[in-house]
Amino acid sequence: MKKRVFFLVLALSLVLLATVAVANVEGIKMYVNGNEVKSDVPPVKQENRVLVPIRFVAEALGCDVQWDEAKNAVVITKNSGDKFLRGKNDPAQQNPSIHTNFVKAADLLAVLDDDKDGDLCDYRDGHSGGDSIANDPLVVDTRLKKDYDAGHIPGAIWISPAEEIAAPANLAALKEALEAHVARGGKNEIVLYCFTAHTAGLAAGVLGAEGLNVKNLRFGYAIAWEGTKQADAPIYAPREDASGKPVPYAPAAK
């Protein structure tokens, strides 16, 4: 009986290994919120179904995953923030002024375009104009990279989505970018933005707790800057793509 069980387990193991090998050959990829993610446990294609590691996917979506021995069950709990923001989104751990520390789109535009020629931050390489960097904050896009590439505030940089901005490597990159900005004569201030100011606001609170001077673009990029969603006085401000080329608005947008 023991031999039969042994050979049965061995046979099942070989089948599973073969299935994983096929999955690896096919190159199954996983994407979470538009970003490709990789796990030490690869997805498995089995009988026309794709099986993915639940802990990895759930945690990538900002959930806690625990094994309940008594119930013999996997327990998944949705959190209000990503794993790098989790535990830091308590108001007591945020910048105390985060709920009022906004910058209006029109005010940010005025600062970035001192000479009012429509070419923002034209002190950048490849631009020529009269804008001064002295009062300009470091503008950081916290949306997905594909959204940044499609169109963003001219002069803004991208490091990571808002949910990952507090990860050690991303936080270090942000501080390094701010130091370089200040060294060029820029203001020691960061302005974050997302589509609607919600996730950027959470990220701003976390970064404020890290001692950084951070503001959040009021109503966000899609509502206030572009006005592509129901907006509060949209300004249809200039946009540029990943190559630095202007992104025009459709005639009906204005």
Rank of each mutant, 00 (worst) to 15 (best):
H127K: 13
P168K: 02
I165L: 12
A200I: 04
R143E: 07
H181F: 11
I190V: 12
I153V: 08
P161H: 11
V140H: 03
A162S: 13
I157S: 01
G126R: 10
A183Y: 07
E189Y: 06
K145T: 03
L171F: 10
D136Y: 04
K187M: 08
S128W: 00
A180G: 09
A167H: 11
W158M: 06
H127T: 13
A197V: 00
L174D: 10
G151S: 08
A183L: 09
V191C: 14
A172V: 04
A134I: 04
T142F: 12
H198D: 14
V182M: 08
G151W: 07
A166H: 09
D125P: 01
L171T: 07
V191L: 12
P137E: 06
A172W: 06
E179I: 11
A167V: 04
R184Q: 13
Y123D: 00
L171W: 06
G186C: 06
D149W: 09
C121A: 13
D136Q: 08
P161E: 07
N170S: 11
T196H: 11
Y123P: 04
I157F: 02
R124Y: 08
G185I: 15
A197L: 07
T142K: 13
I153D: 01
F195H: 10
V182T: 09
V182W: 04
P161G: 14
K145R: 12
L174C: 01
A197I: 00
G185W: 13
A177K: 15
V182P: 01
W158G: 05
G155A: 03
S132W: 05
Y148D: 00
L178I: 02
H198N: 13
N135T: 05
G151E: 00
V140L: 05
S160H: 03
L120N: 06
A169L: 13
L202G: 11
E164V: 01
A150L: 04
G201T: 10
A150R: 15
S160L: 12
A173M: 09
K146G: 05
G130S: 05
A166P: 14
G126Y: 06
V191N: 02
K187A: 03
G130R: 07
A166W: 08
G129P: 11
A172Q: 07
D119K: 10
D117I: 12
D136I: 02
H181T: 08
I190L: 02
V139P: 00
A180V: 10
D119P: 05
Y193F: 13
L120F: 07
E189R: 03
P154W: 02
R143T: 14
A183N: 07
E176K: 13
V191S: 05
N188Y: 05
C121P: 01
A200V: 03
V139G: 01
T199P: 00
H181P: 00
D149N: 15
N170D: 11
G126Q: 05
A197F: 11
C121V: 14
E164P: 04
A169R: 12
